[in-house]
Amino acid sequence: SHCAGCKEEIKHGQSLLALDKQWHVSCFKCQTCSVILTGEYISKDGVPYCESDYHAQF
């Protein structure tokens, strides 16, 4: 499978399933500020955001 963030193949190591896609753990980050999302996040149109950036933009 391929990472939804960087589009590279996910080989051995940690990956996560979010928004119905596979991601490298380090690629699942806020679209705006690039903080790596480990806990709470909000998505809009399949794109992840941290809570503060989501509320600031939408």
Results as ranks from 00 to 15, higher is better:
26 S>K: 14
53 D>Y: 02
30 C>A: 02
11 K>V: 12
50 C>V: 01
23 W>P: 02
12 H>R: 10
1 S>W: 11
50 C>I: 00
9 E>T: 11
47 V>H: 14
7 K>D: 10
19 L>V: 12
54 Y>K: 12
35 V>Q: 15
4 A>D: 09
40 E>N: 06
25 V>Y: 05
49 Y>I: 05
53 D>Q: 04
5 G>H: 04
34 S>K: 15
2 H>C: 03
19 L>Y: 04
37 L>T: 05
54 Y>S: 10
8 E>N: 09
29 K>A: 04
58 F>V: 12
3 C>S: 01
3 C>H: 01
35 V>F: 06
34 S>G: 13
37 L>A: 04
58 F>Y: 02
52 S>P: 12
52 S>T: 09
14 Q>G: 08
40 E>G: 07
53 D>W: 00
28 F>N: 00
20 D>M: 12
57 Q>P: 06
14 Q>D: 15
8 E>P: 00
41 Y>N: 04
11 K>D: 07
4 A>H: 13
41 Y>D: 03
3 C>Y: 01
6 C>D: 02
56 A>K: 15
11 K>W: 05
25 V>H: 08
41 Y>S: 05
46 G>K: 05
49 Y>E: 03
7 K>G: 10
31 Q>A: 12
29 K>M: 03
31 Q>C: 06
44 K>D: 13
7 K>Y: 13
23 W>F: 12
17 L>P: 15
33 C>L: 00
36 I>A: 09
55 H>S: 07
35 V>N: 15
43 S>R: 04
24 H>N: 01
5 G>R: 06
55 H>T: 15
51 E>Q: 14
51 E>H: 06
37 L>R: 03
36 I>E: 08
36 I>N: 13
15 S>H: 08
41 Y>Q: 04
3 C>K: 03
35 V>G: 11
27 C>T: 03
23 W>C: 00
56 A>S: 10
7 K>M: 06
42 I>S: 14
13 G>K: 03
48 P>M: 05
11 K>S: 13
48 P>D: 01
30 C>L: 00
5 G>A: 09
37 L>P: 02
13 G>C: 06
29 K>C: 10
15 S>V: 13
13 G>P: 08
18 A>P: 02
23 W>A: 03
13 G>L: 08
36 I>M: 09
41 Y>W: 12
38 T>R: 12
50 C>D: 01
57 Q>D: 05
46 G>T: 04
17 L>C: 11
20 D>V: 03
29 K>Q: 12
49 Y>P: 01
19 L>M: 10
48 P>L: 08
14 Q>A: 13
52 S>I: 09
24 H>V: 00
8 E>F: 09
47 V>R: 13
10 I>A: 04
14 Q>C: 04
39 G>E: 13
43 S>L: 11
44 K>E: 10
45 D>T: 10
41 Y>M: 07
56 A>T: 09
18 A>T: 07
36 I>W: 08
19 L>K: 08
42 I>M: 14
33 C>F: 00
39 G>N: 09
10 I>C: 02
31 Q>Y: 06
10 I>N: 02
